[in-house]
């Protein structure tokens, strides 16, 4: 079980309903409202969604559909205006910035479209970063980061700087970084957006493999063909869920 220091004394309460049958992610009637002058923009307009452990869910939608807003909420980067977001039995809707930072650090592994590696750190240091923020000592950090790099097959490049690697390799480093902290959830935002079709396929196959190993993956994409690699598809339009079902069902509808 993940230990979150700020829950000191309240662990029971937080983890109490965490029976194996409970969903890893539970969104209850989520609204995210932005104000543009006098106008209200409902980026998320009453979204309810449950995702269980071991699932591979693709969230699909055109740009402006609200899928990025949804990703930010699922990724604990942002809090909803209304509604509850429960991640691993912990309600994050009312959390402070620092508490959200801890949730992101301990429970979520991010894979970004632009890889988002720090250019001035080498590969190993990049992968070590979340472990460092989790407060691990140098030796343990290095061990875990190397293991993680081994999983993506880049252990020999640990000394390299990100700019010395190809796009596909950089994305694999960012996957290694996402895996390093053993997160409950891997959140991939357009993971193939910046890659050619061949490397895209490699990355997607890798995500499938991770899912086969038991990792829960949520992937955000605008491309229905990419979504086909998942097991379950959620389609968002105008801030609402328009479709939620098995990938085969989704394929049939296209």
């Amino acid at each position: 079980m993940i230990k979150l220091p700020f829950l000191k004394g309240k662990e029971e309460e937080a983890y109490g309903n965490q029976d194996p049958g409970a969903p890893l992610i539970e969104l209850r009637d989520i609204y995210k409202i932005y104000y543009m002058g006098d106008e209200e923009v409902h980026a998320n307009d009453g979204i309810s969604l449950k995702i269980w452990r071991g699932e591979f869910v693709a969230i699909v939608g055109k740009s402006g559909s609200g899928k990025s807003t949804l990703m930010n909420i699922i990724g604990a980067l942002d809090t909803p205006t209304e509604g509850e977001y429960i991640l691993g039995g912990i309600d994050t809707s009312e959390m402070t910035d620092d508490e959200l930072a801890e949730i992101r650090n301990k429970m979520i592994g991010f894979i970004f479209q632009q890889y988002n590696l720090l250019p001035k750190l080498n590969i190993l240091e990049n992968v070590e970063l979340p472990l460092q923020y989790a407060g691990l000592g140098p030796a343990e950090r290095k061990k875990k980061a190397m293991e993680s790099l081994e999983r993506v097959g880049l252990q020999n490049k640990w000394k390299n700087m990100p700019s010395q690697l190809s796009g596909g390799q950089q994305q694999r480093v960012s996957i290694a970084r996402a895996l390093a902290g053993d997160p409950s959830l891997i959140l991939a935002d357009e993971p193939t957006g910046a890659l050619d079709s061949k490397t895209s396929k490699e990355v997607l196959n890798f995500l499938k493999k991770l899912n086969d190993e038991g990792n829960t993956i949520v992937m955000i994409t605008h491309d229905p063909s990419i979504a086909m690699n998942s097991k379950r598809v959620v389609r968002i339009m105008d801030g609402k869920i328009m479709f939620d079902g098995d990938v085969k069902e989704y394929a049939a509808k296209l």
Binding site: G75, L77, D97, D98, A101, E102, R104, N105, K106, F110, N116, L117, L118, L129, P130, Y133, A134, R177
Partner: peptide
């Protein structure tokens, strides 16, 4: 700014 964003996304707290 971007670096700070990445660090925060990976779990860096304000104090860090």
């Amino acid at each position: 700014t971007r670096e700070i964003g990445i660090r925060k996304a990976l779990g860096a707290k304000k104090s860090v």
